[in-house]
Design a protein around this nucleic acid. Structure first.
Lengths: 360, 360
DNA sequence: CGCCATTATCGAATCGATTCGATAACGCCC
DNA sequence: GGGCGTTATCGAATCGATTCGATAATGGCG
């Protein structure tokens, strides 16, 4: 007798099951995968043997080596998870992605491209990658992935060869918001911008933002604003949150020459700006118009109906997930461009008349 | 010549690199992994060959088969991602987990145990699993995982053999909150509970909640309240959110015989209850005391300083992540029990005198 | 000068399954 | 009853790396 198998905590292998069932390994495999003709009696024998041995099914590692697929799709997040997941838009997208990839039987592997000896894009066993919240510096990541022959989907990034892009009309949508403000007579407009790059300190928007920005989304939205208000200025917030918006709003509104309208680059930031205005006794929209971006249903929005553009975040995620799945299966999905929808709420109004200015 | 390799889009293998470099496969492997003595000149040759062929490093699939490790830790979420990620506590824990597993060089694979042909706990290539937001019905999941010989860490679950548990003093902390209310003279206390199970409809708390509840956290916290207020009743909210809290709060406060104090099972729910009170013209804390749970920094908390218990959510996640890593490495970490800290804010006050009741 | 301890390299086995081509068994029809 | 098309099963190759034990080359030391 060979009583050596039970000493270690080794799981039984398919070969062991086959041996016990008295069939060959190939037949046992067929019996499990159902990918071939197997008689009912044989299948039963195999299944019984598996039961006896406590065989939990084929080892996924061996399977993925043989099949050349792991069933895993990587998602690259550019920030700390906690930051990424606080943003309702990221969440919505993630949910869309999860929906599609889940339906296709794939799992989602979270990867961050920052720091650490982490399991990273060069060593993770995945079949495709989705880049979320893309910055322009992801070129390196893409290079690595291309070398690995890995299909890549990018959400809101520049077009890059070999990368399937899912885009949003950030520029145009912002321009539409700006034009709405222009129609209302606003001349002094300031932005509360999303971070330009990884450096997260609040600052005045530098004049050369177009060169500095590594975040596509931020840059494109700023461009949209510039299309309508060439000389606009503003503040760069530390992140997309109500608190960051309030801080930025305070700096804007308490400074010299406060604007009559603020373009916030997210609904959370917009809500923060409104808070800031409230705390300074500035009425919205009578004395200050505020617009956002996203169409997030911000809890705590109170009685305001924010003027904003509504982006199809879940759909964007869905599209990305679907594209990734198609790429894995050898298909060639087409890039998709999504458009946002202007929603005019109660936070914008015609510019108050100059004669109401105090002193003169 | 054998010009057949370039036709397909096949990635080069380590063997190809070794061949070009004129060394054996084993040596090439050593050169890459650094796990053995290799002369500098040989290493250089190998690296050059790799460069030439565009070799992107060892195939993770083959690696994980051979090594018996994939570097992936699975996280089982019991709800839709979107739901899970909306809860600040889940996020904080996730962040703690990600921190520790990331440092250990492991990636996080998101798994949901609901529906679909998903890559699931029986077929995902992972080294360990962390169960988050555990319900009592996860016994089946645990059975599957044990059969696979997979290390399992569970956060806030019953003790189960073979499962390393990370627990929180849900019951005791709730009892402390309740005692605080008792000290303030409150006799009529109602709960706004977290969902008892997957069914997500708002309902009156059934009398036999102790049997019905499949969520450990919900049940243990309810038990804590019962320890102090044996006959309490209340509402089961649809989820942990401000909106759900408001809805539940309205039902409680508009109903017959409204309570003088509400124990909400999360800070978000508590905030919702406060909102409900505000909209009904009921003053907090003068006419209604409200306590929460979690110690979440709820944006939009306004001027309230919520009485609650602060749980170390990030630390809980860290502990789970660390435990998972240790289990993978063959260690035997010990279970951990975390405790929450009572924070008395401005949302609780002594019960208003009965003579203030209207009519009689 | 010869022996032994290092150091660098190699060959072959191994991880655990899948899959292709071959073989054997079987019933069918003319 | 013999040839043929099915159906079930098997053997062996393969996926792409890692690693153990063996071998060859190198250097130090007595």
């Amino acid at each position: 007798m060979d009583g050596e198998a039970s000493a270690t905590t080794q799981r039984p292998t398919l070969a062991a099951v086959a041996a016990l069932a008295g069939v060959s390994g190939s037949t046992a495999s067929l019996a499990f995968s159902g990918a071939g003709p197997v008689s009912d009696s044989t299948r039963a024998k195999v299944l019984t043997a598996a039961q006896t041995l406590g065989y939990a099914g084929p080892d996924p590692r061996a399977q993925s080596l043989r099949r050349g697929r792991s069933g895993i799709i990587g998602i690259v997040i550019e920030e700390r998870l906690q930051d990424a997941f606080r943003d309702p838009m990221s969440l919505a997208m993630l949910d869309g992605i999860a929906d599609e990839t889940g339906n296709a039987g794939a799992g989602l592997l979270l990867l961050s491209d920052i720091g650490g000896p982490q399991l990273d894009i060069r060593s993770a066993p995945m079949d495709a990658v989705i880049l979320v919240g893309c910055s322009t510096r992801l070129d390196e990541s893409v290079a690595v992935l291309r070398q690995r022959g890995m299909p890549v989907v990018a959400i809101e990034a520049d077009d890059m060869p070999g990368v399937l892009s899912i885009s949003l009309d950030n520029r145009d949508a912002t321009a539409r918001l700006a034009r709405h403000l222009l129609d209302l007579g606003h001349e002094s407009v300031a932005v509360v911008a999303l971070p330009l790059d990884a450096a997260k300190e609040q600052q005045r928007l530098p004049a050369n933002w177009d060169e500095l920005a590594t975040s596509h989304t931020t840059r494109d939205r700023l461009r949209g604003l510039r299309d309508v208000y060439p000389g606009f200025g503003g503040i760069v917030a530390t992140r997309s949150s109500i608190d960051a918006g309030r801080a930025a709003g305070l700096e804007l509104l308490e400074g010299a020459d406060p604007p009559t309208a603020v373009v916030a680059q997210s609904d959370l930031l917009a809500m923060g700006v409104i808070r800031a205005a409230e705390s300074l006794g500035i009425r919205v929209p009578e004395e200050l118009s505020v617009v956002g971006f996203d169409g997030a249903q911000v809890d705590a929005m109170g009685s305001y109906d924010l003027t904003t553009v509504i982006q199809p975040a879940v759909e964007k995620g869905r599209a990305a997930g679907r594209a990734a799945v198609e790429l894995v299966e050898g298909g060639s999905p087409t890039p998709m461009a999504f458009t946002s929808e202007l929603h005019i709420g109660t936070t914008t109004a015609a510019r108050s008349q100059p004669e109401r200015s105090r002193a003169g």
